[in-house]
Amino acid sequence: METFHSTINNQLNTGVLILDLDLNIVFWNRFLEVHANQRASEVVGRSVFEVFKELPRRWFERKVTGVVQLNTPSFCSWEQRHHLFELPHTRPITTDSHFMAQNCTFLPLAPDGVIQHICILVEDATDVCHYQSMLQKTLADLEQANRIDGLTQVYNRKHWEECLSKEFDRARRYQHDLSLIMFDLDHFKKLNDIHGHLCGDMVLIEVAKTIRPLLRSCDFFGRYGGEEFAIILPETNITGAADVAERIRQAIRLNVMEYQGVEISASVSVGVGEFEPRTRRYEDLIGNADAALYEAKSGGRNRTCLFKDSVVCL
């Protein structure tokens, strides 16, 4: 039996560390010998804190006290504490973590009913940890992709509308200012017809890029559809929003782009709406800004119109 035990102990892919109650090392198996690169003979009799200087001493002592006093096992997972012992792992090339992620189990050893030793099992959780973090990253990427318009990298219609709904509720509840800018590229169909759809795509990308720096980080910039964009401006009244709208219109007008050696210039028609206490639904706010945008279009394009009771053009 004794030989079975020692054979298994040495083949085990788990670290087995036994300490006495003064936290001196009594035993460690081959797993720890090779991972810590120290023979059992070199460490037996030494304090665990001397061999593993990185151990959080106070925490470790309190943990062991619990195990001894309550005669219960205690656990320490990589999810909360990446590792306890600074050990290398077997995937140093294909993972980015420096030390082995560990699940540690503290067990009271009381063969005669009196606890004299503590056994600490150290399991390598590097793989799990690695795949878990890859999964987290993928989920975060997916969530991001779900919100973003692939072409222009601004918010897509769905996410933008969710943001509007939230901002609208907030503005209604606390009676805060909230404005909406909607704008549309002028003669976009003609541009596509003359220069092709790839040129149209380039213009959409350029327009989004030009406008981004004109906005605050708290504004929500989205592609409403086709060549129509929309911006939510929290804490902004219609006067402030009109300023932003004019800056956008001028910036697009002045930005000369180039497509296959040909200079391309564009313009936008802009409609601005403002939240008013009587506005019941966020859709009404969109409707108002859209009505102003329609006036800007029919009034000759490349202009900004505001919806205040009725539409006023700048």
Partner: peptide
């Protein structure tokens, strides 16, 4: 220790 670790530690105890 983090709050998560405290929760787990106390639960286990």
């Amino acid at each position: 220790l983090s709050v998560e670790e405290q929760l787990i530690d106390l639960s286990s105890i």
